[in-house]
């Protein structure tokens, strides 16, 4: 197993192993609720809460969880926090809760969270697990805000409900519909793949020059 430093644990999830854009995990919420920045933020906040709490709990209780039932135990932990997040959102942000609808409850099956428990929290201490969860949570938030921003900008001509293009802007309705989620994700992945390819080509050229 590769040894990592605490700062690596934190940073890794943000970009290098971004859960949505690189690992392609947690795509369901990333596609479903990113039709506005506000919804993306609410979803990110709920997910952030769930992943941090779950990681801390799982890593601190890992000694008591028998290997045979670990997945059920993780799901139980995650589901508990999701229910808590659901009730909190409903009480304190009812408008957002109504917008997100069933997708809050569906955080339970966000494999990004389960993946972090199985891959990291179950094998590392509480401190490291928390760092890892925070990093992953931030990475998820960044991806969702990128998608939400793009979709809201084209779909309604606004950013965080603040009009950017003026009142005459013709909204691209498709962007706030589910199809827009797939298109946006495709666009972002295309751009990232292109940048990555350019980087590799440059490195290759430099290596060739050096030799």
């Amino acid at each position: 197993m590769r040894k990592t430093t605490p700062s690596q644990d934190l940073i890794r999830g943000i970009w290098e192993e971004n859960p949505v854009l690189i690992q392609m995990l947690g795509l369901c919420p990333a596609l479903a609720v990113t039709n506005s920045v506000k919804n993306a933020l609410a979803m990110s906040a709920a997910t952030f809460f769930v992943i941090c709490c779950s990681s801390v709990l799982v890593s601190s209780c890992k000694r008591f969880i028998p290997k045979e039932v670990r997945i059920s135990a993780y799901i139980l932990v995650i589901a508990t926090f999701v229910t808590l997040a659901d009730m909190l959102l409903q009480a304190y942000a009812p408008v957002q809760h109504k917008e997100l609808g069933a997708f809050i409850a569906l955080i339970v099956v966000n494999c990004m969270i389960l993946g972090r428990q199985e891959a990291f929290s179950a094998k590392n201490n509480v401190y490291r697990s928390l760092l890892d969860a925070i990093g992953t949570g931030i990475g998820f938030t960044i991806a969702l805000i990128m998608m939400g921003g793009f979709r809201e900008l084209l779909g309604t001509g606004a950013f965080l409900e603040y009009s950017v293009f003026g009142p005459n802007f013709e909204p691209w309705v498709i962007m706030v519909l589910p199809a827009g989620g797939f298109l946006t994700l495709g666009f972002i992945l295309l751009a990232m793949g292109y940048i990555e390819q350019r980087k590799k080509m440059k490195a290759l050229m430099a290596a060739e020059k050096a030799s």
Partner: peptide, 14 residues
């Protein structure tokens, strides 16, 4: 037992 205790705790929290 582990799952039952965990479940009970989770239920209590909720």
């Amino acid at each position: 037992a582990t799952l039952a205790i965990a479940g009970a705790l989770a239920g209590l929290l909720i």
